[in-house]
């Protein structure tokens, strides 16, 4: 399959993503990467599908790539939650009935259907993030980019949102999750570590988390379960990764 998103920054940073990828990007360059994806940069070449990201075709690119930014969590374009969600659909000039039906069905998925007539300033932070993710997903983009917003969700909402994003990926979308919390990387398929304008490692989740020395030296840490597994593997108690508590306990006390 061809790559859908091709990203080049300078000579060292190169990211290629195919459809159905769920990527977590960690490191200290997250903000710079998001800035280049939003506005473009002199040293950057970005291809989305077959179109290059320039100032002139920014409308076409924004139809395919939608962002959920932390700085915009308190910025609302409408005065009710329903207005906020419907803004994108109104910009696409859909009809009135289509908009209301779509909002009803999608907000039931996200469990926002009782909050539709409220003022968005009065919502809790977890509901605000869900509303922002819903309003970005409802225009059916190809790529969704999340900037450090997952840590604001409650625990049950986090599992719900990750289920919905996995569903989105299976239907041919790409999800890019810029995060600082290493525990969230367990929910995705791939990890890319970008530090000081270089790609340090890239690959499937478990193989990147296997490189614990690099991650600890960069200050990124490891998820709790993977850390435990690593220590016990070093002491020789277990052979391979056991990623749930039950399996790990079973493997530890087998001997």
């Amino acid at each position: 399959m061809d790559d859908y998103l091709k990203y080049r920054f300078g000579t060292d940073v190169e990211i290629n993503l195919k459809e159905k990828d769920f990527v977590s990007i960690i490191g200290n360059m997250n903000d710079l990467l998001i800035y280049t994806l939003l506005f473009g940069h002199k040293k950057c070449n970005i291809f989305v599908g077959d179109k290059e990201v320039t100032y002139k075709n920014s409308y076409e690119i924004r139809k395919r790539v939608s962002f959920v930014l932390y700085q915009h969590l308190d910025i609302f374009v409408g005065e009710t939650v329903k207005d906020e969600i419907a803004f994108g659909l109104e910009s696409l000039a859909l009809k009135k009935d289509d908009i209301t039906n779509l909002i009803q069905s999608e907000s039931r998925l996200f469990k926002l259907d009782e909050l539709l007539e409220r003022d968005p300033n009065s919502l809790g932070s977890s509901d605000k993030v869900k509303m922002k993710i819903l309003s970005s997903m409802i225009v059916k983009p190809k790529i969704i980019i999340l900037d450090n917003v997952i840590s604001e969700l409650d625990y049950n909402d986090k599992l719900l949102v990750f289920d919905i994003l996995n569903e989105f990926c299976k239907n041919g979308g790409i999800v890019i999750n810029f995060t600082n919390d290493i525990e969230d990387t367990l929910f995705g398929d791939k990890i890319i570590v970008i530090y000081d304008k270089k790609v340090i490692c890239e690959g499937k989740t478990i193989s990147v988390l296997n490189e614990d020395k690099i991650l600890k030296r960069l200050g990124l840490g490891l998820p709790f379960i993977v850390d435990l597994n690593k220590y016990f593997m070093d002491y020789g108690i277990i052979d391979k990764y056991q990623l749930t508590n039950e399996k790990l306990v079973g493997a530890l006390w087998k001997k």
């Binding site: 409308y59 915009h72 910025i75 803004f87 994108g88 309003s135």
Partner: peptide
Amino acid sequence: ASVLRLFHDRRKRSNYR
């Protein structure tokens, strides 16, 4: 933020209300 939500200077908009 509205530009990120596909607001365009010249295209017509609809309104659900």
